[in-house]
Write a protein that binds this DNA or RNA. Structure first.
Lengths: 248, 248
DNA sequence: CCCAAAAAATATGTAGACAAAATTGTTGAA
DNA sequence: TTCAACAATTTTGTCTACATATTTTTTGGG
């Protein structure tokens, strides 16, 4: 990679930092971080739906950087699972299968209770305020009816829990899991659903504030179950993936 | 990445496949997979100790490939956490801190019980045989007194559980966790330890064979605790990391 | 009119070369 | 003798150009 800097392991974590202009100099080169961030956010917010082709040359021109740069960014996104790289065919926004979707939720039910447990273990007022601050942001986006932001912030709530909990490995894993969950929602969300009701997040934060590990964990698992239940993973809605079907 | 092929998410999983000659054509180009695999295995087996400088030009000449290829491989290894990339300073084998070490074990205690639970849920004779086959390999390496292989296979046992369990996300995460655990052992293993006793793995497989989720989970957690307990994470044994110490 | 095959166009994979930065070694002065 | 500044070497970061593979279009035949 180019300058993803940072110390050993928690390499490409950093949930939402870098909210700088993204295009510092007028016609200048937008650092690799900016390119990464902009594509990543566009995917999370469903502005680049699953399956969208991401041509290298085109992206290079759009962002005004060299193709090599784009390749690096795409490789990174591919490693995080939000982009599919097929050898001689280029990159597309990933389309997790229903099976992968179920696997991801299974994993989240495993990890997230551990996250809240750790978070409660050494909780302090400052940490709690960060969580409440995020709840406010979410609520705000909701009343503004800013759909893309709501989607992104809902995922970032879970990232924030892991980050505040202070375990870098957990935080990194959660970031991957929430990204993929965003894609899954884009693909399989049953149109009837009223989406993540934000009071579930609020309830979880309340339980955390009370240092009630058991309650917080149960609420978290229930929350995940609700999200999964709101999906249609029956497999028929499978957006027939021709390439995958006739691959072997 | 170059041709890491494969379907969407479980991209760079593939635990130990590709054991082909690694140098197919005499003086020919050894595909990127081979380069990756050889470096990766060398790190896992402690033949490249933590902190080892991995110069691009040198590696390129060693493997007879272009520097670009090496850069890609290094980037991938960095993303998996086994290599540290510092912006203008190049790549080194990662040196997880004691804190990161504790975080990793905390994560493993969270995930691995879930892995065995899932594994038992749809267990079949073929799967059980794979596990037993691995136990045999481990035992073999032990009686041959092949230290590097023992280290690697001990980690791969855990990867195999996740792989056989059939959840790609879990398998990928486990692969990262076991890699980092290998580095941690290289750094912090107290010399007195008699290392992972392989009968612990055997006991776990037995419990799995009996479909005893509770017992298997407990044995797994105990196993992880034993490994962690055999380390010296007191922080004084910290292989003084000059850069980190005088950084701020 | 439709299908098949070939050729053009587009896009990806790879390599080599150049520029910038950092480390190392050397020289000179206090 | 020791420290500091300077210079040379090594190493990383980046870009541009070329080779290869794939997709699309066109052309010819059935």
């Amino acid at each position: 990679m180019t300058q993803q800097t940072v110390e050993s392991i928690p390499s490409q974590s950093r949930p939402q930092a870098h909210l700088r202009p993204a295009q510092p100099k007028a016609g200048g080169a937008p650092g690799p971080e900016d390119v990464y961030e902009r594509i990543y956010v566009a995917i999370l917010e469903h502005r680049l739906p699953p399956g969208t082709k991401l041509g290298e040359d085109r992206m290079a021109r759009i962002f005004g950087v060299s193709r090599a740069r784009i390749r690096e960014v795409l490789a990174r996104l591919a490693h995080e699972g939000v982009v599919e790289l097929v050898p001689q065919r280029g990159a597309r926004v990933a389309r997790p299968t229903p099976e992968q979707a179920r696997d991801i939720f299974e994993m989240r039910r495993l990890v997230e209770p551990g996250v809240v447990a750790r978070l409660i273990r050494d909780l302090n007022p400052a940490k709690l305020r960060r969580l409440q601050g995020h709840l406010a942001e979410e609520h705000d986006a909701r009343v503004r009816n800013d759909k893309p932001a709501v989607i992104r912030l809902s995922g970032e709530f879970h990232n924030l829990l892991a980050e505040v909990a202070g375990n870098d490995i957990m935080a990194r894993t959660m970031r991957e899991l929430t990204s993929l969950t965003c894609l899954i929602i884009a693909l399989y969300d049953a149109p009837t659903t009223d989406a993540c009701r934000d009071d579930e997040h609020a309830q979880i934060v309340d339980a955390i504030g009370d240092k009630n590990v058991d309650k917080a964990s149960r609420l978290m698992v229930a929350h995940l179950d609700h999200i999964e239940a709101s999906l249609d993973l029956s497999g028929v809605g499978d957006e027939v993936d021709l390439e995958r079907v006739f691959a072997g």
